[in-house]
Every structure is written in C-alpha cells, then in structure tokens.
Design a protein around this nucleic acid. Structure first.
Length: 595
RNA sequence: GCUGACGUGGCUCAAUGGUAGAGCAAGUGAUUUGUAAUCACUAGGUUGGAGGUUCGAUUCCUCUCGUCAGCUCCA
C-alpha cells in the first residue's frame, strides 16, 4: 500500500510501475496493440516518468483521456506486479512473436554482458520479466506490489525521442507523466508546475517589457529599455569586478578570416554552427566569431611574455554569434547572439590552482549577491579522446577536485565528459521549471596554446608553454538574466530594478510637491518616475505592483502639508508616512551595490 | 536538424465551412480621487505567409516561417 512518507526509492518504483501501466494503456489504444505498439524503455525520472515507444500514429495530448481511462481500469483492478526469470531463448521467442524489436535489441545487449557479474536485476541465466495483469515487459524492476498504488498520476506531455539517444536511429514517441503516493502530493506537484510557469522568463519578459523577439531575427534578442538597463547594469558591475581583480578588458572584432578558425580548430568541428560570410564565388572566407578565445590568443601572441607577466588575464564582453539549430532556440536561454563575461587567463602550470581559487572567489561574490544556489559538474578526461600529456591532465584534475573540495562546492564527477583539450567545471543553476541551466564554465585548455604556439619566458630564460583557462562567471548574460527573472519572479532587487520608485499623486493638486520629491530622489541617482495621471491611487498602485516596482511613494494632502511621503514597499506593503530624510536614509544602501 | 502541438487586433482568449467577437491595453472626453482596476465613447484584425479544395476557408489539404514541449547538439 502507499506509504505516508514515501522514500525516494519507493517513489521511483511507483513511477516506474506507472510507466508500465501507461505502456499497457497505449497498447489498448490500437487494434492488435501488443504487436503494433513497439515498446522501448520507460524509466522513472525526477518527479516523473516516461515511456518511449513506436506507435502506428503520433500520440497527442488529445489521446491522454483515453490512455488515462485504460490506466485507471488497470489500477482499479489492483493486480500484482510479478517477476519471472525467462531464458534468453524464451524471451527472444516471446518478444519476436510480438514484433518487439527494441526489446529484442535490449535482450541482446543483456546477453552480451558478462551475466555472471550479476548486473542488478539481471538473472544469472536469463532476463527479468515483469507482469501486471495482461501486460508483460522486459524489466529489471523493481516495482511496487499492486497496480492500485498508482492511483495518483497524471500524463503531462508528449514528445519525440531517439531510440538509444541516437539521432541516426528511429525516432520514438515519448509520453511523460507524473505519479505520487498521495493525492495531496500530486496536487502539490501540479500546482508547483503552474506557479513555475507564471515566472517563466518569456512571459515575464513580455509583461514587464524587458525584451522581445521577432521572426525577422530568430534567436536574437531585442532588449527594450527596462531589459537593456538590467543588461547594461549587470555587465557594468561585472566589468568593474573583473578590473578590480586584475583582468585587462579588451574589445575585439566580430568578423575573422577563416584561417583563424582553421588554426583554432573550430572550422573543423563547428563550421556548421557558425555564421559564415561568402565571397563572390560562394566560398566561405570569413565568419562571425562564436567565441572570443582565438582573438585573445592573437593578443597574447602579439608580444613576448615573461613568467613575471603571468597570470595574464583578458576579459571581453564581445558579441558572439552561434548558428544554433532551429529546434534548440528557447527564449533567452538558447539564443543565436549573445555576450558572455568571458575571460582567458594565461597561466603557468604552477599557477593553475591559485588561479582557480581566485576564479571561485568571483563566483562567491556574484552568485552570493543573488543568493543563487548552484552546483557543479566536473568533467574529466576521456581516456580515448584527449590531447596532451597524461601527467599534466592528472595533475590538473587533482587540482580542480581539491579546489572544489576546499571551497565546499557541491559537485558531481562526469567521467570522460571533458573536451579533448582539457577538463572542465560547468556550473548549473535550477530554473523555475526545475531544469538545470548551465551558466558558468571554467575550462582548462592545453590545446589552444599549442595551436597558436604560445610561449612565455621562464626564469631560466627558456621558452615555456602557458596553459589557458577559459572562464565565464555569469556565462551568457542573456541566459543569466533569464535565470534572474525566474529566480526573482520579476521582482529584481532594488539595485537592479529598472525603476526603483514610483512617486504617485492622489490628485493633480499635489503634482508640484510630487515633482519636488522626484527631483530630490533623482539627485541621489535613484531611478524614479512620476505617475501623475488621472487614475485613482488604487489603480496607480496596481500598475506599479504589476511592474514589480520596489517602492511606491504616495503623495497627497497630508504628505504635502507635512513634507513627508507615504511609503508602500513591494515586499512589506504600506509602511506608513516618513520624512523625506528618513526615506532616503532607508534606501541609501539599497540603491546601488558592487559585487 | 528530428517528432509532435500551436499561430485570430499590443496582450489574454472566443468564433468549426456561411458577412471575425470580448476583456485588458491604446486614443478622446468626463472625473480630481488615500493603498491592487472610475465611467463613457472611439479606433484597431484581408485570422503568421504562399498555394490549393470549395459557390464560399479563421475553419479542410499542401508547402513555408515562427513559437512551444522534448530529442540530438551545445566550442
């Protein structure tokens, strides 16, 4: 039976089991379903589950009621989940009779393994099979006891997914659903999703007039005045922080001859994703930069560097263009034109550790300011695909790991996921829909210094190869702002709010005093606007609240006569009248901050 | 790029083969207001674009562009 405080492990079993029930229900949708619906895999995922299958026609959300009906029927019958072990031959025969080619492929995969190594759930001499009622599936389990436990579920969405995640193979239909042990938990989860959708940055971006997109330039952002303010303000703060930390800021071209991209290796790997410029013969000869590093290599190389110059740090917020595939574009999170708080730090091998410490210090300054929780993926060397000296790699990876530990950063290791030219740290933040969004990245690079033949002069006068650290703290400002919008649900902290105060009059009679208040605040570099329209005060407040303005200053007869303002704060509501001095004192520290 | 869904005034949505409608926003006028929407009037759409079927298309079909959910990719 369902548990009151279900363990994560129980919920996984529950969701996995619900996926089986759903697969059965989809089979019921089609005549001869067991033979025409080809099942692939159906695992539980965080909070949800899915099942991938090949079906005679695409499933749409319109099919959900019918699928759910069949699911409920099986749940109501409360049949048990029962495990059996079949021999490979028996399983092959059974699934072949039912035309379940994906399952046959899975069985082959299992039989190829050394089964004596007792892979979990895989029997020594065969495969694990689960039945629930009339439904039979190849599955290592585990499952719950009876279908009746899966009462609290809902189908959510449908999409395509490639068999085995390979875009060269069959594309299947994936149906997502969610399942919980109680009705309340299900409701809570669905409500959370609705709440999250309300803070979707695309929706808020439109409502708060921060930015817009147009089909005339898909994937590139039109920043409206308020959004542009946030963008520029943020970029300015980051720029200042980098200058304080010893970075040299540069500005570099957008367009480069293809030879540069050949040198850097991008031509070979990423030509398809670059915006190219053709000559008269239609041959691409130039490209818009998708990243800044080659430009910075040229700058480094333009003079001889002593070990005394290192670390040499170049910061660049240049405009980048990446011709992302159409299907991947998404709001501000995945765009074709972007700027990063990009930097390249040229260091000696001995300086790697300290430089990483310093970079993580920047993280704490910036992410701490926004109170953003992040975690880190540490991608290590792929044994089959790496360049450079294995000793250097090992040392570098040890350094990165110890830096993560020293700074008590929550990280997971992705073995073999590093690029061939160096190990990397990717910093992830959760967006409002609980999706991981990658922002920052810190990557060690042994390759570009080779390709560009970079050197520095060591104390003994010999020429040595520096190491390059690619780093961005915010990552793309576009994506970072998307995340901030959702993190704050549009209610930016005072220092980042495009409008910090609205002075609003009770009636036209008080415009003079209201203007005086406005001018006084303007002198303090407060971003303040005056609402002297004919609307009633309630309407003005509503308007300002919808725009998430931090402070509303209400000016009527009392305020004018006493030379005060009545303050309504975004967070606390009406906080009463105060003198102008006490208000300016109150906001003095909020108006502006540095990282 | 792939699969699917969607695209109607600035925004949110209605109209299912028969002259496209509402609310909000906008404009004008009235009102001069005390903490989340004052009232009235006016204007605004060849229904993303192109082709087709039909006496007639927002509605059906094809192509195309864009958006969204995912998948693949992500220097």
């Amino acid at each position: 039976m369902s548990e009151v405080n279900p363990s994560p492990e129980y919920l996984e079993r529950l969701r996995h089991s619900t996926a089986h029930i759903m697969a059965y229900a989809v089979q019921q949708l089609f005549p001869n379903g067991e033979h025409t619906v080809k099942l692939a895999i159906g695992p539980p995922i965080e909070n949800e589950f899915y099942y991938d299958m090949e079906v005679p026609r695409p499933i749409t959300p319109d099919d959900f009621p019918e699928i759910e009906k069949h699911m409920k029927a099986m749940i109501k019958s409360n049949v048990p989940f029962e495990q059996e072990t079949w021999t490979f031959d028996a399983a092959r025969t059974w699934f072949a009779e039912r035309n379940q080619t994906f399952k046959l492929e899975l069985i082959d995969g299992i039989s190829d393994k050394d089964v004596s190594a007792s892979d979990e759930g895989v029997a020594e001499e065969g495969v694990s099979i689960y039945h629930n009622g009339d439904f039979t599936d190849l599955c290592k389990g585990p499952h719950i006891d009876k279908t009746g436990e899966c009462r609290h579920f809902k189908l959510l969405r449908v999409s395509g997914a490639y068999w085995r995640g390979d875009s060269n193979r069959e594309q299947l239909q994936r149906i997502y659903g969610t399942a919980w042990s109680t009705r309340e938990d299900l409701r809570t989860y669905l409500r959370q999703r609705e709440e999250a959708a309300k803070r979707d940055h695309r929706k808020l971006g439109r409502e708060l007039e921060l930015f817009q997109m147009h089909p005339e330039s898909p994937g590139s952002v039109f920043w409206l005045p308020k959004g542009a303010f946030i963008y520029n303000h943020l970029s300015e703060k980051v720029r200042k922080l980098n200058l304080d930390e010893g970075y040299h800021e540069v500005r570099t071209p957008l367009i480069y001859d293809s030879s540069l991209w050949q040198t850097s290796g991008h031509w070979e790997h990423f030509k398809e994703d670059m915006f190219l410029i053709d000559n008269e013969d239609g041959e691409p000869t130039c490209a818009l930069k998708p990243m800044n590093c080659p430009a910075h290599m040229l700058i480094y190389k333009s003079k001889r560097h002593s070990y005394r110059d290192l670390p040499y740090r170049i910061h660049d917020q240049g405009v980048l263009h990446r011709n992302e595939a159409t299907g991947t574009l998404s709001g501000l999170s995945r765009v074709r034109q972007l700027c990063q708080d990009d930097a390249h730090n040229f260091v000696t091998e001995d300086q790697i550790a300290e430089e990483y410490e310093r970079i993580l210090g920047l993280f704490e300054r910036i992410y701490g300011t926004f109170d953003l929780p992040f975690r880190c993926d540490f991608s290590t060397r792929n044994p089959d695909k790496y360049m450079g000296d294995i000793e250097v790699w090992n040392r570098a990876e040890d350094i990165l790991e110890s830096v993560l530990k020293n700074n008590q950063i929550d990280y997971t290791v992705d073995p073999g996921e590093a690029a061939f030219y160096g190990p990397k740290l990717d910093f992830q933040i959760r967006d409002s829909l609980n999706r991981d969004v990658q922002c920052a990245t810190v990557q060690l690079d042994f390759q570009l210094p080779e390709r560009f033949d970079l050197i520095y002069i060591a104390p003994d006068g010999s020429e040595k190869r520096p190491v390059v650290i690619h780093r961005a703290i915010c990552g793309s400002f576009e994506r970072f702002i998307a995340m901030l919008i959702e993190h704050y649900a549009g209610a930016f902290p005072m220092w980042l709010s495009p409008i910090q105060c609205v002075v609003m009059t009770i009636s036209q009679k008080f415009v003079d005093y209201a203007t005086e208040v406005q001018n006084l605040l303007l002198k303090l570099n407060c971003r303040v606007v005056l609402d002297n329209s004919d609307d009633k005060i309630g309407a003005k407040i509503r308007q300002a609240r919808l725009q998430r303005v931090p402070y509303m200053l209400i000016i009527g007869e009392r305020e004018r006569d006493n030379r005060t303002v009545s303050v309504r704060s975004r967070e606390e509501g009406d906080i009463g009248a105060m003198t102008l001095d006490s208000f300016t004192e109150k906001i003095r520290d909020e108006i502006d901050i540095d990282f």
